[in-house]
Simulated scan of single mutants.
Amino acid sequence: MSAPVTTVAVVDDQALVRSGFVVLLNSDPGIEVVGEADNGQQGWDLCRRTTPDVVLMDVRMPGTDGIEATRRIVTDPACSGTKVLILTTFDEDELVIEALRAGASGFLLKDTRPDLLLHAIAVIASGESLLDPAVTRRMIERFAALPDSGPRPPPEDGLTAREREVLIAIARGMSNDEIATSLHMGYGTVKTHVSHLLTKLDSRDRAQLVMYAYESGLAVPGA
C-alpha cells in the first residue's frame, strides 16, 4: 500500500517565489501541489475547489491579505480539514499574533531551510502546530514584556488541575512524549488531555492553546 499523499496549495503574490515553492514541494513524493494563487481571495477560492491538506500562505498581498484569507478558510465548512501555514519575510510580533488568532496552524519565515519547510508541512498535516523557533522566542519575549499585574486567579475555563499542567507544558513547547515523561503520564493519557483542552478552550490546534496559556496568565515566560 502506498503512503498517503499530502495535498498542498501555494498562495503568494510573487510568481518567482510561488514557482520556487512548487518546485521544492514537487521534489517530495509525499506531496502533491493542487494549485497556486496570487492573492488571498483566489487562495480561498482555490481551497474551496480543491480542499488541500495544507495551504502555504503569504501575509503581505494586494487585496485580501493572508490573515483575512486564513480567517475565511478556517471558518468555511467547504474547506474543512485544511490547515494554514503562514510564510513571510516579516517577523513582526503582531503578524504572528494575528495569524494565530485567525486560525493559522503554523508560522515560518521564508528564509527557513527547505527540509524544515517540508517537515513543517508534514507536522501541520498531521494535526500539530509549528512555529519558527525565532518566532516562538519573540512571542514569549512579547508576553514577558507585558506589565506584571501580580498573581491572577485561575480563569473560569472549566479545566481540571491536570489539564492546566498539560496546558502549561504545551506553552513551554513540549511535545506529547516530553509531557508524558515530565508529568509521569502515559502517552495516550496526554493525548486525551490535549484533546479535552482543544474542545474546552474552543481551540483549533496547539498554537492557539499556547496563546491562551500566556494571555490567561497560566503560563509565565521564563518560569
Rank of each mutant, 00 (worst) to 15 (best):
G217N: 05
P29L: 08
A145S: 11
F21L: 15
D115Q: 14
L95N: 13
R204D: 09
T82H: 06
S195W: 10
L85E: 02
G106I: 01
R172H: 08
D58K: 02
L46T: 04
E32H: 13
E215F: 02
G35T: 08
M1N: 14
H119V: 07
T192K: 15
E32P: 05
T89Y: 14
S80L: 14
R60W: 12
A37G: 15
R142P: 04
L117F: 04
L109G: 06
G158K: 06
G217M: 03
H184F: 15
R101I: 00
D76P: 07
T89R: 11
R162S: 13
V123L: 06
P114T: 08
R72C: 00
F107T: 00
I140T: 12
G127V: 03
N39T: 15
H119R: 10
I73K: 02
T189D: 09
V5L: 10
S27V: 10
A99Y: 01
V190F: 06
G158L: 06
Y187C: 12
A37N: 05
V190P: 04
F143I: 00
D157W: 03
G186F: 15
A180S: 14
V23N: 10
D45H: 10
R71D: 03
E178Q: 10
S129I: 03
I97H: 04
E215S: 12
P147Y: 07
A169H: 07
V190E: 04
L95C: 09
R113H: 15
V190G: 05
T199H: 11
L159H: 07
V17D: 09
D111V: 14
P62D: 07
T189Y: 13
S216T: 09
T82L: 08
T64H: 11
S182G: 13
E156P: 06
C47S: 08
V17C: 09
D12R: 05
R60L: 14
R172V: 03
T51W: 07
V54R: 00
S129Y: 02
L87M: 09
F21H: 08
D76C: 08
G127Q: 05
L56P: 02
L131Y: 02
G217Y: 00
N39F: 11
G158W: 05
G35H: 06
